[in-house]
Design a protein around this nucleic acid. Structure first.
Lengths: 195, 195
DNA sequence: CGCGCGATTGAGTAATTTCAAATCTAGTGG
DNA sequence: CCACTAGATTTGAAATTACTCAATCGCGCG
C-alpha cells in the first residue's frame, strides 16, 4: 500500500496544523518548498560521507539513522515512522557531508525539504518558523531525556521504558536494532524477561 | 569581580551578534525582554518541583543543571559558563514545574527571559527568532553527539574527549561533578591515567 | 591544629559484553 | 507441500568494565 499525492498532502498538513493553523494558500505555499520521494526497504536516504541536504518527514514507512563507529559497531540514533522527521542534523544545518546513515526498514514515502528552502519558507511565513521551532525544541527535550535515561537507568529499565513509549516499534523493528538504539548488546536484550 | 549593567549588555549583544546583526534600537528592544540576576555560589536558579519560567544566559560564573533520580543519585545534564544558556527546557517551554535543579558552582550573573517574553520578542523581531532557532539547533546537534558518545565510548574515552572539548571546565569543576556529567562514578574517574 | 572537602586507593561485586554455538522462523524455489 | 536458507533470536560461559563500599590521603582555611 502506498499513498497518493493527495493523501500525502493531507498528512503533511495535519502534522503542521497540530502546531500552527494555515490557510489553504499558506499551505500551498508551504508545500511548494517540499518534494517527495519513495523508497524501498533497504534503500538509503542519507549515506555517511555524502551530502545530506534534506530534512525528511515520513508519510509512510519506517527508517533509522545510525552511526558507524571506529570499531565497526553501529549505533542507532533514531527511528522514524509515520509523522516523524529524520535527518542528519549536523550535515543538514551546516551543509556538511553526512556522518550518519539513514535507511529504510520498510518501504517508505517521505517529504523532503532542503535547508535553503526551509530558510526561505521560514523567512516568508513566520508561522512555519514557529512550527520548526516547536519541533526542534520538542526534539531537544526528548534528547535530554534520553541522555538521562542512558546515565541513570540500567539496560532493562531502558528497555521497559522503550516498550511503553514506543509499543509500535517493538512490533516493527528487529530486536537487535532496538538493542542498538538502547545502547546494549542484542544478547543482553535477548536475556531480558519478557514483558 | 562582577560586571556592571553596561558590561553585561555588551556581552549579551556580542553573543547575539555572533548570529544576527542588530541595530541599536533592535538591541534595546531585545534587551527590554530580559531581566538580570546575581547569585552566589551554592544558590539555586531552578529547583525541582517548582516553576522554572526562565531561560538563562550566563554573563559571568558557572552553573550546573542536574537530575536527582529515584535512587537518590544525581546526574549532571549540563554545565554552563560564560556565554552559555541554561534552563530546564521541558519546564520552560511547557510551563511545567521543574524536574531539574540548576545551581551555581561559582558566583554568577545571568540574564533571564521568560517564555512569554521570548515568544513576544520572536514574534516582533524575526531576527531573534532566527537567533533562538540557531541556538536550539546547535544544542540539538550537541545532544545527539553526547548520546553517541554515551553509547559508543567507554568511560575513559568520554573523559578524554571531555578534556579536549572543555579544558576550562576541567579546571573549574570538581572531578566528582565531571564524573557525574560523564555518567561514571567518581572512583572510576579517579583511576584514569592522568592526561 | 584540626576540620572538611575533594581526591585516591583497594578489594570485592555486579552488570554487561564478547565469542561461540545452537535454535527458531518465515519466505522461496522445486 | 517440503526442504532449504538467510535472518533473527536465544543460550552458555568466560572476560571485561565499571560500580560499590570502605578506608586513607592531602590540603587549604579558619
Amino acid at each position: 500500500m502506498h499513498f497518493s499525492a493527495q493523501d500525502m498532502e493531507e498528512i503533511l498538513r495535519e502534522q503542521i496544523e497540530k502546531i500552527v493553523k494555515l490557510s489553504d494558500e499558506e499551505f500551498r505555499f508551504t508545500l511548494s518548498h517540499f518534494t517527495t520521494k519513495t523508497l524501498k526497504k533497504h534503500q538509503y536516504l542519507v549515506q555517511a560521507g555524502e551530502p545530506a541536504p534534506n530534512d525528511h518527514f515520513v508519510v509512510k514507512g519506517l527508517l533509522k539513522s545510525s552511526y558507524l563507529d571506529e570499531l565497526g559497531k553501529t549505533h542507532i540514533l533514531q527511528f522514524a515512522m509515520e509523522d516523524w522527521w529524520i535527518s542528519d542534523p549536523q550535515a543538514y544545518h551546516n551543509k556538511l557531508n553526512a556522518t550518519l546513515n539513514i535507511d529504510c526498514l520498510e518501504d517508505t514515502q517521505v517529504y523532503l525539504i532542503s535547508i535553503d528552502n526551509r530558510e526561505k519558507l521560514c523567512a516568508e511565513l513566520q508561522k512555519m518558523e514557529y512550527f520548526f521551532m516547536k519541533k526542534t525544541t520538542a526534539g531537544y527535550i526528548a534528547l535530554q531525556k534520553r541522555i538521562l535515561s542512558l546515565m541513570s537507568q540500567r539496560a532493562e529499565e531502558r528497555f521497559t521504558q522503550f516498550v511503553q513509549l514506543y509499543p509500535t516499534l517493538l512490533q516493527r523493528v528487529p530486536k537487535a536494532l532496538i538493542a542498538s538504539y538502547l545502547g546494549i548488546s542484542r544478547e543482553t536484550l535477548s536475556r531480558m524477561p519478557v514483558v
